[in-house]
Design a protein around this nucleic acid. Structure first.
Lengths: 258, 258
DNA sequence: CGTTCAGTTGACCATGATCAAGAGTGGTGG
DNA sequence: CCACCACTCTTGATCATGGTCAACTGAACG
């Protein structure tokens, strides 16, 4: 299940943790058709949403219609853990594909969290990692060239999907249109098109029928100036050959219940 | 005191809350000279830092030397609340001016937080607002023109300083060099220079001797497509004439201790 | 009074935007 | 089964915002 895989990037889960998490995934679901919104800027969410399947995106719109995707939401992601604070949404969440989310009531989440301090810690992780991803996106759009930006996006998406078990080998689903990529990277669709053609010509990516293949991840990371630290994935040692010493040390930290 | 003013943007503080907050501000301090780092990418922080005076910045560097400021740290800000999670820093924090921070030990913060659920809620707010600011920065660098970006930065800084009591009337301190502004907006110093000259010519800002004056904030917000919602400042009604109804409703939400 | 650093100016360049038209592709209904 | 429509992708020509390089000014400080 993507959620448990996701949280296992950060902490060890006990059997009872898993049981509690299963309760979250068992909540009633809602399905959003492609290109519709789950929730809009200004609305007050009733639930915390947990992505079960499909892709969504977090985006902001300016008054004159410019639109910027600020993050993607893939299975195992929470959409608005901030429900704890209960305020208006400062951005919207839309569906890219058919998008199925579990609607978790406040009290249910609160129950899980009080039963399992472990899970509280894991949810903090999730929040902080998504903040770290925001930071990396700032760097991405502010400093990188078109080719670097798009390569970086490909690397991030591939590794995030892999981390929840949704990649096989060198490939993963990739339902984004070139317009979506443009909205996420601050480029125009025309330029995204030309840049992707260039990436294809250099055999850095294969992109066809909603499927992304990265024949040589290290090489793509190289051209993107991609440094995976910001994802804080424990299992990344798969890719970096760093060994497991540091990981084990991290996992031994006692969870802090706040 | 900036910290209490800051938290009062989000919640009502009781007398005992204030007393606990005073304990945080009374922790031992450390002073960083201008242009030195408080902490670097990859290091493991021993403390949560609370900014007492001066300005700092959060920044990331790419391997080839490109540098991007991803947020500023001003009095009343916490630098790395994520200490709860204890991992390596994924970015650095540097001093812009002489920069004084209180070093708060884990157990001290933990004590304050367990005594005052109110403050826990407030700290969640602080985290979520800074995440929201990250999102706005993504939009800023990805979608706005040079003039819009810089105007937007001016608006944000002015309102954030005002919210902690560090603006008087139309002015606030502004110790950033044009190089700093360039690093924060993803522009070159040369272009920042020309753009600021243009803003001056249009009498949108006065910028001299480390001091920023905004004669007509509404007008500057207009050219920047600045919408202050993302700052989640309760007291913004001062600027928007929105009245206080919604604010009062928000403040009446019971704080959630997580 | 020289050194340093921020700010300023000019000339030229390049990355990516804009505008416009056409080619594939997939889904829908007659 | 095919015709049509809509949407995404592709291509070309031209333009503009902002980058690069380099030199100069001015203020601050020892």
């Amino acid at each position: 299940m993507p959620l448990t895989r996701r949280l296992e990037e950060y902490i060890r889960l006990s059997e009872s943790d898993r049981k509690e998490l299963a309760r979250l995934s068992a909540q009633p679901t809602r399905t959003i058709p492609p290109r519709y919104d789950l929730i809009r800027e200004g609305e007050v969410p009733d639930f915390v949403y947990l992505v079960m399947s499909g892709w969504g995106c977090h985006y902001r719109t300016l008054e004159d219609g410019r639109r910027q995707i600020v993050d993607f939401a893939i299975p195992g992601d929470f959409c608005d853990l901030n429900l704890f604070i209960l305020d208006r949404m400062d951005h919207s969440i839309g569906a890219i594909t058919r998008f199925k989310v579990a609607e978790i009531r406040r009290d249910v989440l609160h129950g899980v969290v009080t039963n399992c301090p472990n899970i509280t810690t894991a949810l903090w992780w999730v929040e902080l990692v998504s903040k770290s991803i925001h930071r990396e996106w700032i760097v991405n759009v502010a400093q990188r060239s078109a080719q670097e930006r798009i390569s970086h996006l490909f690397c991030e998406i591939f590794l995030r999907l892999e981390s929840v078990g949704l990649a096989n080998g060198f490939s993963c689903d990739f339902p984004l249109t070139q317009q979506d990529i443009a909205d996420a990277t601050g480029l125009t669709p025309v330029h995204v098109n030309r840049t992707i053609q260039e990436l294809r010509r250099q055999e850095l990516v294969v992109l066809e029928r909603q499927r992304l293949t990265i024949p040589d991840l290290a090489r793509l990371q190289g051209v993107a100036f991609f440094n995976s630290e910001y994802l804080h994935h424990r299992r990344l040692s798969r890719h970096t050959d760093e060994g497991r010493g540091a990981d084990e040390a991290r996992l031994s930290n006692p969870p802090i219940a706040v």
